[in-house]
Design a protein around this nucleic acid. Structure first.
Lengths: 352, 352
DNA sequence: TTTGGCACTCTCTCTGTACGAGTGCTGATT
DNA sequence: AATCAGCACTCGTACAGAGAGAGTGCCAAA
């Protein structure tokens, strides 16, 4: 694969692997003596020290101070997860528990929350799942309800069962009957198309039909415009188990922890990061500063996109300290993504 | 008021007051020398020490160790906020900023979030606002949409503009037209009544009209029953600025912080606490262990209920370390509650 | 009742020491 | 040429003692 695998011989890689594994399980810098015992290769500490010096030159490990052992750098972890890691197949009973819990939900909206919780509990770190977003959001049904002061409560349903509502202000007052009529009109005109298509159609109709159409339809269309024009893609995610992160000494630092949690609540930065993961399929990993996102500097993010009927609709993943058990986390994330996708899959299209 | 105000003379109270004030601003145990300088009474440190001994006997202050100054106990704080505290009137421009921000929202659902954020920003601690809950929730409108497999998406609107949705399973398959008819029937029968009233009426109709009514109506009523029967009072709150709490040394302890945040996310315990505050009107304060809620042992909670048209509908408040500037926080909470109530007040009832 | 004085206690910080872990390097061994 | 044992060296940590500072409690005098 990378330049390192060519530059380094088998033995060095083997040693790097055991070093990372050891550090992940212990959390202590690992010295040459420990490494000599841990690895199957029968080498003396002195030899190992030579190898370590090489690895250090390549920027794969570093020591916190002169006479401490070595700990992996970001590149070291990267090489480890890319080429050295042996993923652990996961436990059958855990798998069936996962599957069972997800399949038991019949309301997709809390299925996301459940998946997030599962990830968190499974890994004892933070789980994150983005709300499923289809490229083609299908407009299904709209409903207007009058409020006071020319305000109208708009309820509309997209895809199977996603309910949205917003309040719009109308230029003049409409009677309930008029609103009903407008809703009927919009439903008959636009239902079944994608939101983008609806948006365009509305624009077009508003331009073209200015003369031909009667007043009631015009009102309906202009309200439709208000509803659909702003491209409010409510990117969002559900987080769980963030308090699990408080236990890790890497993140014990006040400011780090605060930055991290602030990032969680501000959301935008995290969303951007997750969006990147959506493009690549399969499991995607950001280690430490790789994410380029300050708040995540001491964290790793293991994600996988999930798909409903072969279309990628979201991302889920796990956030934890850089020092995490990748060989376990990766299959967890992978499987959860597949199971969630399957669980979200509508068994068939509704009659309507 | 309490037993203490009678037991203690003016001077002791005065000293307790300055001690608490000093401790709140400094965070250090305050010694007799400092107290002697701070208080206007011209007393020597020695005299002050005698008084402190008395206060300690009464359980109002205590020293962390032999030769540290004194810090207030929970009872000390309690006496302070009940009888000694001089609330600071709040800054006019802050008040108008508050009012402006709240009035600018025209969607009540994010108004709650905004209020919470305001509290957090204002106090640099955590803000919390419960979702408004009226005793009488008025049923307004219902809508059925068919999904696959005899599942039906139910959308219903209560009060002015609260949209709820849930998925129910029906015994047999209904055509869209049948569902439409059922919705029309339910709307005409029950709209305008309180949810409780609807629930009862549905039960009654289901019992009584078994024979008289036609099949369509019967179906409608039995679906209505599914929708309304479970008493899902979705008690919930919106939290903001919880990360502000990470800065306080009192809460720096790992486990404490974790417990606190776990409590925030579990919600139930906090909801119970807030419910208690709803009963008392005016500003309500829990100091440290007073709340009886383990996770809040090192926190204080300053709350006030808020009302829409003279009916208490929710609670808001601020959560911070026991050592907080009560004289500022109290008016903040008080005013915010009043402003939020006013902002939520519907200007008039909608025509419908 | 108030106050100054004094002995005492406790914490915090600094210092020096000893120790252990681990490294880098060198020169001998294979 | 690769490997390894040995050695000097470095760094961090744990521990103990000393000194300073803050503050108390108590007693006796004003």
């Amino acid at each position: 694969m990378g330049k390192h695998t060519q530059l380094l011989n088998e033995r060095s890689l083997q040693l790097l692997k055991t070093l990372v594994e050891r550090y992940i399980s212990d959390g202590q810098p690992v010295g040459s003596r420990a490494l000599s015992k841990d690895s199957d290769l029968n080498l003396s500490p002195a030899t190992i020290r030579n190898v370590m010096a090489d690895l250090e030159d390549l920027g794969l490990v570093h020591s916190p101070h002169t006479s401490a052992g070595r700990i992996p750098t970001v590149s070291g972890y990267r090489l480890f997860v890319d080429s050295l890691l042996t993923v652990q197949p996961l436990n059958v009973q855990e798998l069936s528990r996962l599957q069972g819990t997800l399949a038991a939900q019949h309301d997709p909206s809390n299925m996301i929350g459940v998946a997030s919780r599962l990830l968190a509990d499974l890994t004892q770190m933070a789980g994150v799942v983005t709300l499923p977003r289809r490229e083609i959001v299908c407009f299904r049904h709209i409903e207007f309800l009058p409020l006071s002061h020319n305000r109208v409560l708009v309820i509309f349903v997209t895809n199977e069962q996603e309910v949205h509502n917003k309040i719009i202000l109308t230029a003049k007052h409409f009677s309930p009957a008029e609103l009903q009529q407008a809703a009927n009109y919009i439903n008959s005109m636009y239902a079944g198309r994608s939101l983008n298509a609806v948006r365009e159609a509305v624009m077009k109709d508003l331009r073209d039909d200015q003369e031909r159409v009667n007043q009631g339809m015009l009102d309906a269309i202009s309200m439709a415009q208000q509803v659909f024009n702003q491209n409010e893609q409510k990117d969002d995610y559900v987080l769980a188990g963030e308090t699990n992160l408080m236990g890790f000494s890497e993140l014990a630092d006040r400011d780090r922890l605060k930055n991290l949690f602030d990032a969680f609540y501000q959301k935008q930065g995290v969303i951007d990061l997750l969006d990147q993961c959506m493009k690549a399929d399969g499991v995607q990993i950001f280690i430490g500063e790789e994410s380029g996102y300050q708040a995540f500097d001491h964290c790793s993010l293991v994600t996988s996109s999930y798909s409903v009927s072969d279309e990628v609709v979201g991302v889920l993943g796990v956030i934890g300290p850089t020092r995490m058990a990748y060989e376990k986390i990766i299959p967890y994330v992978d499987i959860t993504a597949k199971l969630l996708g399957a669980a979200l899959n509508p068994k068939s299209t509704p009659p309507l």
